[in-house]
Design a protein around this nucleic acid. Structure first.
Lengths: 224, 224
DNA sequence: GTTGATTATGACTAAAATGTGAAACTCTTG
DNA sequence: CAAGAGTTTCACATTTTAGTCATAATCAAC
């Protein structure tokens, strides 16, 4: 995962191309979708989409609907493109959980600036060196975990799982939730595979392994 | 800490009052500052300011400078108020770490909507609340129950049952109703099993166990 | 008080969920 | 294609829980 992925949804290909050009030039990966249904389809199959730019006016399924649908499953930032001056639209958007609102016609510079502002905000953990909790230090950029200053070797899944636990510190996580977030959205395997990974994590974390608590009949929770 | 505090900085008192009115009506605590220096002074003396609304044009120290100063020590969200149409300003703002940019004149509704959008994003901890009744604190997110501040261990069913009681505080609940809500609707076992769980709950709750009252010939009721 | 019904309680058992080690499978690399 | 790491599955041990039952205590009505 090098470049951040941005999903651009607009029915006009000319507009998609314009936006894409500027974003690519600023170092992002751009994925396009031509209507709402395609957008949702793409969003739930492609992993790690960092931000969505969404046109309001689209045939079949409009931007609000797409937004509503996505907000039911994800907090991925959404920027809405809409016709200038419609205040009602803007209010509706904020209620739906739109993060930013840009009126057409807009300057591509403004667009890029806002994209970066949002990504700086939400993806700030990427830039942060390392999260440190109770002697466990997790560096997502370097993919390194240290316990009391000593580096320990974790596999990819173990690392992702630990990161997920730490990010949701103090929250009870059901197996289903863990599968949907650490594994792919469409993973159909056995939920018990989580147990195996938890076992390995616990043993590799040593004493600190006890912070991963079992919630009987429910799932797991990371808590110090 | 009940209401969130918002610092409003503008040299025009009329403008401050306008913004304040709307924010107060939306349930925020508003602190005012009339210029940049006062703003910084207030910001670093008052604790827990959740958001800053900053006018660009101010005598002595303008908004950009205030922003720069604050960003050196804090990530508190900043909304800038600036004259409409000055794109250069907007770009500068994003570079400085401004979170949002609102052009004057603006509708107060938009202002409130944006404030709420930002606070929802940054202050997402608001959502994981714990219900607290007569010394019994139930945190559904963390799956933790505390009695007078001391955590007690409950099994899955016990937790669900207690949560159901507390949610229906003061309401008489028949065994049938309890079975349908806490157990699966297709549970065909003995209704007496509720008694056993109530017994366990009462004993684990200690003194507070008395709040679960028996309604003879009918069921139970949680009442303080 | 006595009676019949209802609820409380403690002990017990069956069932369910989790822990664990090893085997099977997958995917990459040399 | 063999080796090796990472992942997943499986079987079995272990732990925890839910539910049952017998008995004791309580209640309402007479």
């Amino acid at each position: 995962m090098d470049k951040l992925k941005i999903l651009v949804v607009d029915d006009e290909s000319r507009m998609r191309k314009l936006v894409k050009d500027f974003l690519v030039r600023s170092g992002y990966d751009v994925i396009e979708a031509a209507d709402g249904e395609e957008a949702i389809d793409v969003f739930f199959t492609v992993k790690d989409i960092a931000l969505i730019i969404l046109d309001v006016m689209m045939p079949r399924m409009d931007g609000w609907q797409v937004c509503r649908e996505i907000r039911q499953h994800s907090k991925t930032p959404i920027i809405m493109l809409t016709a200038r001056g419609d205040e009602r639209d803007e209010l509706l958007g904020f209620e739906l959980g739109v993060d930013e609102y840009i009126a057409k016609p807009f300057s591509p510079k403004i667009l890029v600036a806002r994209v970066e502002a949002i990504l700086r905000r939400t993806n700030s953990k990427v830039s942060d060196e390392a999260v440190d909790i109770a002697g466990i230090s997790i560096n997502k950029t370097a993919h390194i975990v240290k316990v009391d200053g000593v580096e320990i070797e974790l596999s990819f899944k173990e690392f992702e799982l630990l990161a997920y636990f730490v990010e949701n510190q103090g929250i009870a996580l059901s197996r289903e939730k863990i599968l949907n977030n650490v594994w792919n959205y469409d993973y159909f395997g056995d939920a018990r595979t989580i147990d195996t990974h938890v076992k390995k994590l616990r043993s590799k974390l040593g004493d600190k392994g006890d912070y991963i608590k079992t919630i009987w009949g429910m799932g797991y929770k990371f808590e110090c």
